[in-house]
C-alpha cells in the first residue's frame, strides 16, 4: 500500500517537474521572440506603434491587477474558509445568481477579477459561483454601465441591454460549468503553483498570525506573490494584442462583415483579438456604427470582450486546467453568439 502511495507521489512530482520545464521553455521562447522583435525592428514606425499599444495596455491594466492582488491578499489573511462558507448561499444556483451580479456592488475590470477569483476558489467558493463572478463582474458593474451609457449618446436601452445579456450569459455558462466540472477537475493542482512552494508557512496566516499590522504585512506579501504569478500572462496577452493592432487593419474586419450574421461573428473575433478594457470598449463598439456594423454585432463585441479575450485566456492558465479553459471559452463564445443572433432576429 505504502509503495503504491510512494509511486503515485513520485509520478505526481515527475509530472510537476515536466510541467515546470515546459513552462520555463515556453517563457524563454517568448522572451527570445520579443527581444528579437525589438531589435530587428528598431527605429521603424511599426515598432513605435507596437511599443505604444503594448505598453499602454500593460500600464492601464497594472493598477487594476494590483487592486485585484491586494484584495486577494486581504481575503487570504482576513477571511477564513468557514466565514466564506457561511456567507455563501447553500443552494448553488442562488450562489451563481448572486455571483453574476455582485459586480454591481464590487466593480472590477477583467484584469482585476482573475486574482480575486483565484483566491475565492481556494477559500472554498463553489466553482460555478466563482465562474459567474469571473464572467459577469467585468460587465455587470456601474463603471461599465456608465461608459456604455456615455458612448452610446446617453442611451439607457443600450446600457441595460449590455448589462442584462452579460448577467444572463455569465449565470448560464457558470451553471453549465458547475454541472460539467468538479473543482478538482477545474483547477490546476496547488503543487504546480509555485506560490505555495515559496510560502513558508503553508498560507494559513488567518489561523496563525495575530495583530492587524502583522496580518496586513502578510496580506501584502500574498498580494505580491499573486501579482507575480498572474501578471506574466497579462503581458503575453498584451504583446499579442499589440501585434494584432499594429499589423492588422480594422477595415479588414469591417469589410468581411457583409451580412448581419457575419457581423456578429467578426465582431466577436475582433473582441477576442483586441483585448480592450471593459471600461473603454463601448467607445470602440460605438465607432463601428459608422462602418455599418449592426447593433447586435456591436453588442456581441461589448458582451464577449470582457468575458473572453487573448489576455484573459492566458491569465486563466495560471488558475484553470486547459480542458476547463477550452470548455469555458467555447461555451462563452457560443452563448454570446446565439444570444446576439436572437437579438438580431428580435430586431
Amino acid at each position: 500500500m505504502d509503495s503504491h502511495i510512494k509511486s503515485a507521489n513520485a509520478n505526481r512530482e515527475s509530472d510537476f517537474v515536466i510541467q515546470l520545464r515546459a513552462g520555463a521553455i515556453l517563457q524563454f521562447i517568448f522572451i527570445f521572440i520579443a527581444l528579437v522583435f525589438l531589435f530587428s525592428l528598431r527605429n521603424t514606425e511599426s515598432l513605435n506603434t507596437f511599443s505604444i499599444i503594448f505598453f499602454a495596455i500593460v500600464l492601464e491594466a497594472l493598477p487594476f491587477m494590483l487592486i485585484g492582488s491586494l484584495v486577494s491578499g486581504l481575503i487570504e489573511v482576513f477571511v477564513s474558509r468557514d466565514r466564506i462558507a457561511g456567507l455563501m448561499p447553500r443552494r448553488k444556483w442562488l450562489a451563481v445568481l448572486i455571483g453574476a451580479g455582485i459586480g454591481l456592488i464590487f466593480p472590477v475590470c477583467e484584469c482585476a477579477v482573475v486574482p480575486v477569483v483565484r483566491r475565492f476558489l481556494r477559500k472554498g467558493v463553489p466553482l460555478s459561483a466563482a465562474i459567474a463572478y469571473l464572467l459577469g463582474g467585468p460587465i455587470v458593474n456601474p463603471i461599465v454601465g456608465a461608459s456604455t451609457y456615455i458612448a452610446y449618446a446617453f442611451s439607457w436601452q443600450v446600457m441595460i441591454t449590455r448589462l442584462a445579456f452579460g448577467y444572463v450569459i455569465a449565470a448560464s455558462v457558470a451553471i453549465l460549468i458547475g454541472l460539467l466540472f468538479s473543482k478538482k477537475q477545474a483547477l490546476i493542482s496547488e503543487s504546480s503553483d509555485h506560490h505555495h512552494h515559496d510560502c513558508c508557512d503553508g498560507c494559513h496566516h488567518s489561523d496563525h498570525e495575530t495583530g492587524t499590522i502583522r496580518k496586513l504585512r502578510s496580506a501584502v506579501h500574498h498580494a505580491a506573490q499573486d501579482f507575480y504569478d498572474v501578471t506574466r500572462f497579462l503581458i503575453v496577452g498584451a504583446f499579442v494584442a499589440g501585434l494584432l493592432q499594429t499589423f492588422i487593419s480594422r477595415q479588414v474586419f469591417t469589410q468581411l462583415a457583409q451580412s448581419p450574421d457575419l457581423s456578429i461573428l467578426i465582431m466577436m473575433i475582433l473582441a477576442i483579438l483586441l483585448n480592450l478594457c471593459s471600461e473603454a470598449d463601448a467607445f470602440i463598439a460605438a465607432s463601428f456604427r459608422s462602418a455599418g456594423i449592426v447593433f447586435s454585432g456591436q453588442m456581441a463585441f461589448m458582451v464577449l470582450g470582457p468575458m473572453l479575450d487573448l489576455k484573459l485566456i492566458l491569465m486563466y492558465l495560471g488558475l484553470f486546467r486547459k480542458r476547463l479553459i477550452l470548455v469555458l471559452s467555447t461555451l462563452t463564445f457560443l452563448f454570446v453568439g446565439l444570444s446576439m443572433l436572437i437579438l438580431q432576429l428580435l430586431g
Binding site: 517563457q27 517568448f30 522572451i31 520579443a34 507596437f50 505598453f55 507575480y228 506574466r232 504583446f239
Partner: peptide
C-alpha cells in the same frame, strides 16, 4: 516571469 515583467519597460 521577472524577465517577462520587464519586457514592457524595454519597449
Amino acid at each position: 516571469p521577472a524577465l517577462i515583467l520587464l519586457l514592457p519597460i524595454f519597449f
